Simulated assay, not measured.
Amino acid sequence: MRGCVIHGAGDLRVDELPEPVAGPGQAVVAVRYGGVCGSDLHYWRHGGVGDFLLREPMVLGHEIVGTVHSYGAGADGPAAGTPVAVHPATPCARCPECLDGRAHVCRDTRYLGSAARMPHVQGGFASRVAVPAAQLRALPEGLALRRAALAEPLSVALHAVRRAGPVLDRHVLVTGAGPIGCLVVAALRAAGAAAVTVTDLLPRALRFASAAGATTLVRADDPADPGRPDEVDVAIEASGSAGGLDTCLHSIRRGGVVVQLGMLPPGRSPFAGNLVVSREIELRGALRFDTEFDEAIALLGREASFDALVSAVVPVERAGEAFALAQDRGQSCKVLLDFGT
């Protein structure tokens, strides 16, 4: 069985792995597609994500779809052969956050393809993977696996929009037109935003944002760009840069909401904190998602426009090529690995 395994910074291999066996309460999924995420790229380039450093080889990947293969003892769910998406989080269900209905910030969660704990939680970039059966979601009829592979990152975008509060008929700024930023645009339009302005440094990235439904595109490195708004109602920072956050804080109206979605670099990040006080801006964080996963699958089933955001599908045997392509934001949006099962 093939698996996409990171052994250290710059050391990505397609290894032969043992076939998984479904334990009690588990299901084995035959994976068809896996989306390459920014965290996968960080493990590949730097050997870690923030403070989470690789200490052993780890199968990457948490954006996976496929078909049900088999179940372990005491487990049930969609019938064998059913197309499914896999929710990647296994919260503890015991901590104060879980008991408060905020499982997405569980302090002891297990997340596919994460080095946050030791031993690491192995990911889903493999021909078959064993996961808790409760994390399977059957796809609606007509939703192809290729588009369904966007369910996990779209869930992240939907959660960020939810954190922003009401966006109906409002003007929203999104800084960063990477895959997540573009999906935020799509989520905003689905939620009824009247206008969505997107900033980025790269023309190709902005074209993907336009395909997602952006109404105005702005070059982030051009202060004289005529599309740059004087004021917006809501801002979502999706670039993961201090500059993007600064743009949001300077663009938001008094009393407005800024959502920090992009993960900022480790350490201290300077930002215009005085504006938070003088304009009474609400600065909110957004981490992962919970129930939005089911909403994402339903939305993908209704909207064919998401297909334009899948920029490449690469066989797993050429995983290195897929990661290099995903890293090149001037050429790609969402890159999928194809496990061909």
Rank of each mutant, 00 (worst) to 15 (best):
L158S: 07
R288C: 12
V121Q: 15
V335Q: 11
R189T: 14
M118H: 13
V313T: 14
L168Y: 14
V65R: 14
V172N: 09
C106I: 06
P270M: 01
H171G: 04
A157M: 04
R162A: 15
G66Q: 02
F125A: 11
C4W: 01
G74W: 07
A319T: 06
S332H: 11
E56D: 09
M263G: 09
G192N: 04
A312T: 00
A238K: 13
L17A: 01
D15I: 05
L53M: 13
P203S: 07
K334A: 04
R32C: 00
D169Y: 00
G61A: 05
R55Q: 15
G81M: 03
G330P: 09
S305M: 08
V198Y: 10
P315W: 08
T197R: 14
S239L: 07
A326M: 08
E237G: 08
P132F: 05
G192T: 05
H62S: 03
T291G: 12
A164I: 00
G101K: 01
C92D: 13
V232N: 08
G192V: 07
D307I: 06
A73Y: 03
N274A: 06
C98W: 10
G244N: 02
V129K: 02
K334I: 00
L261N: 08
L136F: 11
E295V: 07
L154E: 05
L54I: 10
F339W: 01
A130V: 03
E321K: 05
L158I: 14
E321F: 01
G273Y: 11
D222L: 12
A130N: 08
H62M: 05
R318H: 14
D221S: 14
C106L: 06
R288F: 14
S241C: 06
G320V: 01
I6H: 04
I281F: 11
G38N: 12
A151S: 15
L201W: 02
T90V: 14
F208G: 05
D40I: 02
R94E: 15
H7C: 01
R318A: 13
A130I: 07
V131I: 10
V49F: 15
A133L: 07
T291S: 12
I64G: 07
V49D: 09
A138W: 10
L202Y: 01
M118R: 14
F306W: 09
R117Y: 10
P140A: 06
T216G: 02
F125T: 02
S269Y: 00
Q327P: 00
A272R: 11
E16F: 02
V196C: 03
V184T: 13
C248Q: 04
Q122E: 14
F52Y: 14
V313E: 09
C37D: 00
I281M: 06
E295M: 03
